[in-house]
Design a protein around this nucleic acid. Structure first.
Length: 196
DNA sequence: CTACCGATATTCT
DNA sequence: GAATATCGGTAGA
């Protein structure tokens, strides 16, 4: 019996369920408005596609833990591990709305509008102060915590995933319709699908 | 709209 | 040792 019964389905089914969730670290809390599903071994775009490498190992563990990694040398991105223990599945937290700790978040993102504080996966982690040493954190125990919404968000839209070279066409990006904190879509320059 | 760059952990050969 | 990347900011067509 998992502590996260709502996170045990396939990544693409669980992902929209994380919209409206609140993730917090210290004084800062963010309401998630945009996510992407990554389905491990059956998903060429997932870091877990080639087995449990040291980096991706936590994705093979139980749901409700934090998988984070360094992206392009300078950004940190955070996923919530979902699915049953032994499966590799995760949901990337792509963007959100700062709902607590605005002063701290703004210090980390000087000069940007309120809606831009956590607009994009790297920026979301910067606003929350999440770095890779928090990889493997139990989201029920902290220091990073996750709280699911009482009822799923109603106005959910889906589309292709952002910035992947492989399997980007799967419509596994989910966001809250018309929310100003959702990031802009960007295609990978060498995406192997959608364009020659 | 597309393309490049920065700066580096991680993976591949 | 080389190639790649779940990004973000900016510049150019």
């Amino acid at each position: 019996m998992s502590a996260w019964p709502d996170l045990l389905g396939p990544a693409e089914a669980v992902a929209p369920r994380l919209l409206g969730a609140v993730i917090s670290h210290g004084p800062v809390a963010v309401r998630i408005t945009e996510v992407e599903a990554y389905a491990g071994s059956r998903d060429p775009g997932s870091h877990a596609a080639r087995g449990p490498t040291p980096r991706a190992a936590v994705m093979f563990g139980p749901a409700g833990h934090l998988y984070c990694y360094v992206s392009y040398g300078m950004h940190t991105c955070a996923n919530v591990v979902v699915g049953h223990d032994g499966e590799a599945a995760g949901v990337l937290l792509r963007a959100g709305e700062v709902v607590a700790g605005h002063d701290v978040a703004r210090e980390r993102r000087p000069g940007v509008a309120e809606s831009q504080l956590a607009r994009g996966p790297g920026l979301l982690c910067r606003a929350l102060g999440i770095s890779v040493d928090l990889r493997g954190t139990d989201l029920a125990e902290g220091p990073v915590r996750l709280e699911l919404p009482a009822t799923p968000v109603a106005d959910v839209v889906s589309g292709p995933r952002v910035g992947l070279r492989l399997a980007a066409q799967r419509p596994w990006r989910f966001w809250i319709a018309d929310d100003p904190t959702v990031s802009d879509y960007r295609r990978h320059p060498k995406a192997s699908d959608g364009r020659p």
